[in-house]
């Protein structure tokens, strides 16, 4: 009786892990997510001050996932990423505007505006996919960068639409001064983006992305249509960026071209994605949270050095790229493998 009961429970357990696995969570990854979800109720994380860090961590983590979809799979570093995120932010903010000084005064609710922003960003991603199609590696990255600079230029100069460098003050998403609801919104976005990207990369699309990223000639000779897969990849990645931009606009309620679209913002995401490990998606999530805490701590401890976090990003990224290109996620996978082998040996010894 007892044995069958136990077996039944075990079967049930494996059923749950199977479902989790299908959407891209290992059991330990899921536990970490649950911990993250209850963190806002545990002091000191429950303070509004630290909640902002958590929100920023989830915001960066979600960006790193979307960024890694392009950089880690088809091997094109989208240097225009921040600008496209900004495009989503601006679209939503402009649509929400009610001020009579600007041309567009639709006053649309941010909940819809965010998705329109994502669609606009996705559309630009679609075009970007075509633009960079014939270019490889570095050249594609430079092209994406130029497109980003062009978008930044537009945001700065279309003053009737964006107030230029003065920036916009879009309405907030929720009528609350508490940060906790925002944390759950961005956490949901992060998980949704992760699951969508994971499902895509688990499918034939993922294989096509990686094949195209590693050897485009052999991929084409094996029947992979580069247009279809690269354009799809860019569209999805930029759509996610646009959605996150919408969150940024209506959470921080302040939007300037410099603060969201600048290349240094892309570099921040790039550093987190690369340190996390290219081609894993979850590496960036694992890196983003400790990083935000570390950087914010540094910022408060050394207020005289404002650009220090970028220097640290740079140094760490160079070290990872040269000495450990698999990044943190690669290390975790390696360690897990080692533990498994060790356990098997131990069991075999009995």
């Amino acid at each position: 009786m007892k044995i069958t009961e136990l077996a039944g429970r075990k079967r049930k357990m494996t059923g749950i892990t199977n479902i989790l696995q299908r959407v891209g969570f290992s059991p330990s990854g899921f536990i970490l997510l649950v911990v993250l979800a209850v963190l806002p109720f545990i002091p000191p994380f429950s303070s509004e001050f630290i909640l902002r860090w958590l929100i920023f961590g989830a915001f960066l983590a979600a960006q790193a996932v979307a960024f890694d979809l392009t950089a880690g799979y088809i091997n094109v570093v989208n240097f225009g990423f921040a600008a496209i995120l900004g495009l989503g932010a601006y679209t939503s903010a402009i649509l929400a505007n009610t001020s009579p000084y600007l041309i567009v005064q639709t006053g649309l609710t941010p909940w819809i505006g965010m998705f329109i922003g994502a669609i606009v960003a996705g559309f630009v991603g679609f075009i970007l996919g075509f633009l960079t199609l014939r270019l490889r590696g570095l050249y594609a990255a430079i092209m994406a960068w130029f497109v980003g600079i062009a978008i930044l230029g537009l945001a700065r100069n279309l003053i009737k639409l964006t107030r230029g460098s003065l920036g916009l003050s879009p309405p907030s998403l929720l009528e609350t001064s508490s940060n906790r609801p925002y944390f759950y919104i961005i956490l949901t976005m992060m998980v949704a983006i992760y699951i969508i990207c994971k499902i895509v990369t688990r499918s034939h699309y993922g294989l096509a992305f990686r094949a195209l990223g590693q050897n485009i000639d052999a991929a084409r000779a094996s029947g992979i249509n580069p247009t279809k897969y690269r354009v799809f990849n860019f569209t999805l990645s930029c759509f996610c960026a646009g959605l996150l931009g919408g969150f940024y606009a209506h959470y921080f309620v302040s939007l300037t071209p410099q603060a969201v679209m600048h290349t240094s913002k892309t570099v921040e995401v790039l550093a987190i994605a690369f340190i996390g490990g290219r081609g894993f998606l979850w590496g960036g999530i694992l890196t983003a949270f400790p990083f935000v805490f570390f950087i914010e701590y540094l910022r408060s401890a050394l207020p005289g050095l404002p650009g220090l976090h970028l220097v640290i990003y740079g140094v760490l990224m160079v070290l990872v790229m040269i000495y450990y290109p698999k990044g943190l996620a690669g290390f975790v996978v390696w360690a897990r493998e080692k533990i498994k082998i060790y356990k098997e040996e131990k069991n075999g010894g009995f």
Partner: peptide, 13 residues
């Protein structure tokens, strides 16, 4: 279908 003079598979697959 073809093979390549310098075999070019997908290294990280």
């Amino acid at each position: 279908s073809r093979t390549f003079q310098i075999s070019r598979p997908f290294p990280r697959l």
